[in-house]
């Protein structure tokens, strides 16, 4: 009877197949690094997210190979509240939606030159969510116009 039960257990475990495995070292790092993380966006070896520390939320980019946050000079202004972020596959470009001075803006940040470029929406609208393709040269953005959500595509040089 006991042998049969063990055999059944082995059979059941075998039937489950491979399972996704939590990554405890990185998850521990994320837990220690800040009070909260939200809106993840994965590149090839990059994790972009919105991180809250000491009551302030900022865009954070972590290099998953060496498990360290990357400096983003010029991006996280003290008077800005980030709303969403997306990273290109190589981690070089970040599309960010942020609120500042009562306006909600869509930004493109290029790490190689440390510049923030504001992308205008035409017709005007309020951006809410953003996605970059792998190359960082095509962007899809959810925009509120006339009380309706639309998706615009923006090709970037």
């Amino acid at each position: 009877m006991k042998t049969a039960a063990i055999a059944l257990s082995v059979l059941l475990i075998g039937c489950r197949g491979p399972q996704p495995r939590p990554m405890p070292d990185l998850n521990g790092l994320l837990r220690q690094a800040s009070n909260s993380h939200r809106d993840p966006s994965l590149g090839e070896r990059w994790l972009a997210s919105l991180s809250r520390k000491a009551g302030r939320e900022t865009v954070e980019l972590i290099d998953l190979r060496n498990r360290r946050p990357v400096s983003l000079p010029g991006l996280n202004r003290a008077d800005a509240q980030p709303i969403d972020v997306s990273v290109s596959a190589d981690g070089q470009r970040l599309a960010v939606i942020e609120q500042r001075d009562g306006r909600t803006e869509l930004l493109l940040y290029r790490r190689s030159v440390g510049t923030v470029q504001r992308l205008l929406l035409d017709p005007p609208g309020v951006p809410r969510a953003v996605s970059l393709d792998g190359s960082g040269r095509l962007l899809a953005v959810q925009v509120s116009r006339d009380g309706r959500w639309q998706v615009d595509l923006i090709r970037l040089p």
């Binding site: 493109l108 470029q117 992308l119 969510a129 959810q142 959500w149 998706v151 615009d152």
Partner: peptide, 19 residues
């Protein structure tokens, strides 16, 4: 930057959370 509405999208139908 050049923008365009999502190709083939249905006018009037809400679209959210692009990926």
């Amino acid at each position: 930057a050049r923008s365009e509405r999502s190709a083939g999208s249905s006018p009037g139908r809400s679209q959210q959370e692009p990926a």
